[in-house]
Amino acid sequence: MTEEITPETFEHLVHLAALELNAEEAQYLRRQLNNQLKAIHELEAIPLPDEVAITSHGVPYTPSITPPIRNDEWLPNSDTKSILSQAPDTDEGYIVVPDIPHTDLD
């Protein structure tokens, strides 16, 4: 059976996913993805008439159980230092990142 996710498609996915992989890892992951797709193709055996809509949540969110939208209130955080201290690199309250690539527009 031909592989659905070819090395080229895989490379594209890895780029979109912002991952750097070694060759051994890439080979394992691509093989597993193709194996998983064999299971996913089981879904094609099911007749799906047009009236079958999508379900994005199992439990219907009826008005009686849905919380009311709360007011858009500003609540200050009491401990911003501990949040900022989690960042790998900071400078005077700013988070520092490497150079951000940009393209000059004409």
Partner: peptide, 30 residues
């Protein structure tokens, strides 16, 4: 690293195990 994108790739490549990587890649594909 050269830039932010390379930092993303190296960070995620080094720190995610194979199970998160599998889920990200399949999620993006389907």
């Amino acid at each position: 690293v050269e830039d932010l994108n390379e930092m993303y790739r190296k960070t995620r490549g080094q720190a995610f195990g194979v199970q998160p990587k599998l889920r990200i890649l399949m999620g993006m594909y389907v």
